[in-house]
Design a protein around this nucleic acid. Structure first.
Lengths: 254, 254
DNA sequence: TAAACTATTTCTTATATAGAAAGGCGGAAT
DNA sequence: ATTCCGCCTTTCTATATAAGAAATAGTTTA
């Protein structure tokens, strides 16, 4: 019963500081940081100085205020590239894109939700794209998420229900466990999942999960404004999604 | 002459590990990390364990290999949002976008170059966008960069020349300091900078610097494939860039 | 099954860290 | 201008932590 020797105390404190800096768009003073992290100002300052040296934090020399550093972007870009699902799936998603000409997302399961790791845009819309990559959506309210849920076993699903509250985002969000269970059964039969304005008004999505060795490793979806949805287009998208899913999984499973 | 007390040794070692993990797309073993960073494997492992706890590193439980963690994406997204230049400039860049319908970049000076912090895409092209945001281009070979150089004072410029080798990227890259100086004079007269296939074949850009309190805080540019460039379009772009620069700077300088 | 490698834990010493307190600096108020 | 006040920075030392060698556990190869 010997307690493990503690380690990385400075790292953990540094991470607290980083999280605090990442919790706001404002530049923070030493005081704000030391109060916000329960560190003495001398300790916080020494850690901050080191974080500045390694490029994780920026210090405004005039105001003495701190913000996140630019090195983090390099890390993030590399993180995305290290998700080999992105590498594998991207060419097929591009192909899908060329056929449906709508927004396409790729996501991976993360923290009881699904995290966007790739996004293909169709139009002239100028989008602030980085605000989305890395974003996490709940499983029960998105096409990708429901496609993932449809691959869960029954006890896995039960555990999901236990730990998850079905909060409505729109009037269409499914907030009832029985109804969600019905929906999941339907997805298992049809082979694709839908999001009919359940996350965002006017937004319709069709998605499918991606399995490697019978395990969910991600999901992808096509999203569009609802006014562009005709029943013929809907059928086309379903067909193309199924084809794309097959192609990607073929590669994923060697 | 008392040496400063060392601090943040673990942080710096952790950063070495992070940098190593960010230097490749491969997942790395403990051995590879301990060799690549000159840390003993026990030290490296303890740091890695902590990095996993705080979400900076991912450990594959099967292979025991390490990759970067997903928390870095959150940091990166927030970093972008903390660049308040992005907030200020975006609406004007979107307006510009709607007029020229070509790719628009926004950058900030960083490490003897210019770092992309925003990108507005015009077309149906599916772009792997995160690979660009955060990317750094040299000053002498890009429209944004040369626009920044044109705001340098003469001694500042001399210092830049001293520390910078003019490496050619294409046959059109300016690799001669006198020629570059001529070009800069021209930019100062015309008010915008050009990149005529100097960075990438077939790519033509027009850019301008953004000043706050007479200090360069960024730059933006319009990029297009050269075959779409007519002389009328060129003039239109120059005009629109000048207008956009004025509008953004008006806000930047309150 | 053994051999060879790699990951993990243990243990001890030397070292880095935490935090209080003092000192410095700059902006605000008078 | 001068004082005051708040925040940033430095100093110092007991103490908690880190480093590394070596033992152990685990895994792959032959």
């Amino acid at each position: 019963m010997t307690d493990k020797q503690p380690y990385g105390t400075v790292l953990i404190k540094a991470a607290r500081i980083m999280d605090l800096l990442a919790s706001t768009n404002e530049a923070l003073s030493l005081q704000q940081i030391s109060r916000g992290t329960d560190l003495t100002s001398s300790t916080a300052l020494k850690i901050l100085d080191t974080l500045v040296i390694i490029g994780y934090v920026n210090k405004d020399l005039k105001t003495k205020h701190f913000t996140l550093g630019s090195k983090l972007i390099r890390y993030a870009n590399r993180f995305i590239e290290q998700q080999d699902l992105v590498f594998v799936a991207r060419p097929f998603l591009e192909e899908l894109q060329s056929k449906v000409n709508e927004t396409i997302h790729l996501g991976v399961p993360k923290e009881n939700g699904v995290m966007y790791v790739e996004k293909l845009e169709p139009k002239n819309q100028s989008i602030y794209m980085t605000s989305r990559i890395g974003g996490i959506r709940s499983l029960y309210s998105s096409a990708m998420g429901k496609a993932i849920l449809a691959e869960y076993g029954s006890k896995e699903l039960e555990q999901y229900f236990e730990r998850t509250e079905l909060i409505p985002y729109t009037a269409h969000t499914i907030t009832n466990y029985l109804q969600l269970q019905e929906e999941i059964k339907n997805i298992q039969q049809v082979g694709v999942a839908f999001d009919d304005e359940e996350m965002e008004a006017d937004c319709f999505c069709v998605g499918a999960a991606l399995l490697r060795d019978r395990e969910v490793v991600g999901a992808f979806s096509v999203s569009m404004p609802k006014y562009r949805l005709t029943s013929a287009f809907r059928e086309k998208i379903i067909l193309e999604i199924k084809k794309t899913k097959m192609k990607i999984e073929e590669v994923l499973n060697q």
